[in-house]
Amino acid sequence: MTDVAEVKLPVDVQRIAKMLPHRYPFLLVDRVTEFEAGKRVRAIKNVTFNEPFFTGHFPDHPVMPGVLVIEAMAQASGLLTQLTVGEENKTNQIFYLVRVDKARFSRTVVPGDQLVMDITHKRSIRNMGLYECRATVDGKEVASAEILCAAPEVKA
């Protein structure tokens, strides 16, 4: 496990892109601002009017789709895992979102918002990690969920 002092904060988007397989327009984390190895991470997504999904969701009232808020929290969960094992020890193992429980959306996310995601690692089971996720804008909760991510099992 990586020592907290070894992770230089903030983690910028260039470092994030080295840890996650996602790319434009689907990389939904811009920065990591807080990190405790194996425990928690705080990450942000700056939501701009230039996001491609605003073209159709909705043209006269742009709202970030809830499923993309969940995806952003899943990506932040992946960053918690990657930072914990250490950026230099990153494997090219891809983790998939396999379950979302207790998803709740309390407010809309709109252009100009800064989505702050607080992710807590609850437990690991074999090749899976369970995370408690909360997203806020201006200190007010906009979404929360429990997310389970898993690496595919290697067949012999």
Rank of each mutant, 00 (worst) to 15 (best):
V41F: 04
D30Q: 07
F54T: 08
L9F: 05
V63A: 08
G56R: 07
F53H: 13
V63C: 08
P25Q: 13
K8A: 09
F49K: 11
M73D: 08
K18Y: 12
Y24A: 01
P59C: 07
L68C: 08
V63I: 15
D30G: 11
A17E: 13
D30L: 05
N50S: 10
K18R: 14
P65Q: 03
E36V: 15
H22W: 13
A5T: 13
V41L: 08
K45M: 07
G38L: 05
L68K: 05
F58N: 09
T2G: 10
A37I: 04
D12H: 12
F58C: 02
T2M: 08
P52H: 05
L20Q: 02
D30Y: 04
D60I: 10
V7K: 00
F58T: 07
K39P: 02
V69Q: 10
D60Y: 14
M73P: 09
M19V: 10
A74C: 09
T2V: 15
P25E: 06
N50T: 14
V41T: 00
R42A: 06
E51D: 05
V11Y: 01
A74P: 03
F35Q: 02
K39E: 14
L68V: 06
I44Q: 06
F35K: 03
V11F: 06
M73W: 04
R15G: 10
R42Q: 10
T33D: 11
R31F: 11
H22N: 13
K45S: 03
A43T: 01
R40V: 12
V47W: 01
V11K: 02
V47D: 00
R31A: 14
F35N: 01
L68S: 02
P59W: 11
M64G: 03
P59Y: 13
F49T: 12
H61F: 15
D30S: 03
F58K: 11
F26T: 07
D3N: 08
G66K: 00
I16L: 11
L9W: 06
R40S: 14
V69Y: 08
L68W: 06
F54Q: 05
V7C: 01
E36G: 04
F58R: 09
V41N: 00
K45L: 10
R23F: 01
L9P: 00
L27R: 04
P10Y: 01
G66P: 00
R23D: 00
E36T: 14
L28M: 14
M19I: 09
L20P: 10
R40H: 12
L20I: 11
A72M: 01
G38V: 07
K39F: 09
A43Q: 05
A74D: 11
E51L: 04
N46C: 15
T55I: 15
A74Q: 09
P62V: 00
V11D: 00
D12G: 08
K39R: 15
R23E: 01
E34W: 12
M64I: 10
F58H: 04
R15F: 14
M73A: 05
I70D: 06
F26R: 07
A37N: 02
P10N: 09
E34K: 12
A43S: 04
K45D: 03
L9R: 01
N46F: 12
T48C: 13
M64S: 04
N46Y: 12
D60A: 13
V32M: 06
T2Y: 03
